Simulated assay, not measured.
Amino acid sequence: MKTILYRSSSRGHANHGWLDSRHTFSFANYYNPDRIHFGALRVVNDDIVKGGEGFGTHPHDNMEIISIPLYGDLEHKDSMGHTEVIKTGEVQVMSAGSGITHSEYNANEDKPVNFFQIWVFPDTKNVKPRYDQKAFDFIHNKNRLVQIVEPYNGKNDASSLWIHQDAWFSIGTFDKGNSLEYELKKQGNGLFVMVIEGEFSVGDETLHYRDAIGLSDIGKIQITANTENARILLIEVPMNF
């Protein structure tokens, strides 16, 4: 098993006043040659945007983009004609494909929004751009993982969102002492694990708030919550793509 530890305190940081952003991987003005990507996982940004502020219209192409509000609401507009608000408990996926433009703003004037924006390299370039979002019942699925993203397979149902990559995303909230054994779904994939809230043991490593670890050359891993209402994000991605 190979591991890469990403402590929260070691992330890149940019504070623009309206935006307070932390980058697990190299992004914008933050560059670390040892932190370019983890397999097909290219960006994990932890963004806090002030009320009424946001990212103006900007372009993307050939990237799978997943946005996960942690608190607050995120307003999205794009060149495909979508105008949506992504609320806490919802997840958005966007296949930039052959090219899109979009904007993202805090939907509220009086409180901040905190969200993860995650980029994954696609397995197919120049696909037709697409957008989707879905609400998940995390509250009534405590002490288990809720799968939120899966690969496109031509027959995906409405239970989770899908992207153009052999990647799986899951989120779970756990009581102290509860454990799970995560078994990777595809040989050769790696697993990126990030603590959203609380503390977890991942194998022999203890992870605190917003710490993360990348695991490769593994088949399965034991994960245990060390605090009450501990919340965790798991992203399984190809290491070679």
Rank of each mutant, 00 (worst) to 15 (best):
T83Y: 07
V44R: 03
D20K: 05
N29Y: 08
G39D: 10
V120A: 06
D211I: 09
R42D: 11
P151F: 05
E150I: 05
M239V: 03
I196E: 05
G81Y: 07
M63V: 14
G97Y: 00
T206V: 15
N62A: 04
G203S: 09
D132M: 13
N178P: 00
E109K: 14
H13N: 15
F115L: 15
L215T: 04
Y31N: 15
L74N: 01
T88Y: 02
K134T: 09
N15A: 14
A158E: 13
H208Y: 05
L74F: 04
A158D: 14
L161F: 07
A158M: 12
G54A: 10
Q92K: 10
S21F: 02
D211N: 11
V202N: 00
D157P: 13
I171V: 05
G172F: 01
Q133A: 11
V202S: 02
R42K: 15
D157V: 11
A96L: 03
F115A: 04
H208C: 07
S95K: 03
G51P: 07
I213H: 01
I171F: 00
G188F: 09
G39C: 13
L19E: 07
A158I: 10
I218R: 06
G214N: 12
V127W: 09
I118E: 06
I118V: 15
K111H: 12
E228N: 15
T101H: 09
E104F: 08
T124F: 11
G89V: 06
S26H: 08
M239I: 10
K134Y: 11
F200P: 00
